[in-house]
Simulated assay, not measured.
Amino acid sequence: MSLLSKRIQWLLDEVDNLTLHNATFRLIYFLLETHQHPNYCNIISLDVPKHVLASRLSVRPETLSRILKNLAKQELIALHDHKIELVDIEA
């Protein structure tokens, strides 16, 4: 029952994120959730193609690319092929 309850709560949070927040927020939330621990390296390796990540975040691949470029332009992240470096986690 506990596992089922946790799964339902996760799904409700997922629905909230997809409906109440914009695409930039969803991407940043995904990156921070993937990173999670400040002791780990600040580089996130994308294990899936960008179009799959875009689908997971409910955005078009073009929108995902645009958001990634904007975050890189703001020097919040750095893009390295299939890796994303979190440059300024606090921001």
Score class of each variant (00 low, 15 high):
L64H: 14
Y40S: 11
R26K: 10
P61F: 01
E85P: 02
H21W: 14
R7P: 00
S58Y: 12
L12D: 02
L46N: 07
K69F: 06
N22P: 07
V87K: 11
A91I: 11
L12N: 06
Y29Q: 10
I84W: 02
I43T: 10
A23I: 05
R60M: 10
N42Q: 14
S58R: 11
L12A: 05
A54T: 08
D13M: 05
I67Y: 12
N42I: 07
L79W: 01
I44H: 00
E90A: 15
I43M: 08
P61V: 05
A91R: 13
L68T: 02
I84R: 05
H82M: 11
H21I: 10
I43W: 08
L31I: 11
L64K: 12
S65C: 06
L18S: 03
H80P: 05
V15Y: 06
F30Y: 15
L79F: 01
T19R: 10
L32K: 08
P61G: 03
L31Y: 08
L53S: 04
R66C: 08
Y29D: 11
Q36V: 04
N22T: 06
L20M: 13
E14I: 05
D13G: 12
I43G: 03
H37G: 02
Y40D: 12
S5W: 01
T19N: 07
K83C: 10
V52I: 09
N22V: 03
Q9T: 14
D88K: 15
E75V: 14
L76G: 02
H37Q: 07
D81T: 08
R56D: 09
H80L: 12
Y40E: 13
H37M: 06
A23P: 08
T24L: 15
P38A: 02
P38L: 06
K50Q: 07
T63V: 12
K6T: 00
R56S: 10
V59Y: 04
L76F: 12
E75I: 12
S2V: 00
I67R: 11
S45C: 02
L46M: 10
I89L: 15
P61I: 05
L12R: 11
L64C: 09
N39G: 09
S45G: 02
V48H: 05
Q74D: 13
I8L: 13
F30H: 04
R56E: 13
N22I: 03
Q74V: 10
S45M: 04
R7I: 06
Q36S: 08
I8F: 06
Q36G: 00
L46T: 15
L3W: 01
I77F: 08
L71C: 08
H82E: 08
L53Y: 02
D88I: 15
N42T: 09
V15D: 07
K69P: 00
T34H: 00
L76I: 14
Y29I: 03
K6P: 00
L86Q: 01
H82S: 15
A78D: 07
L18W: 00
I84K: 03
R26Y: 09
I89Q: 11
S45V: 14
R26H: 12
R56T: 13
K6Y: 01
P61L: 01
A72V: 12
D47T: 14
I43N: 06
V48Y: 07
V52M: 04
L71T: 04
A72T: 14
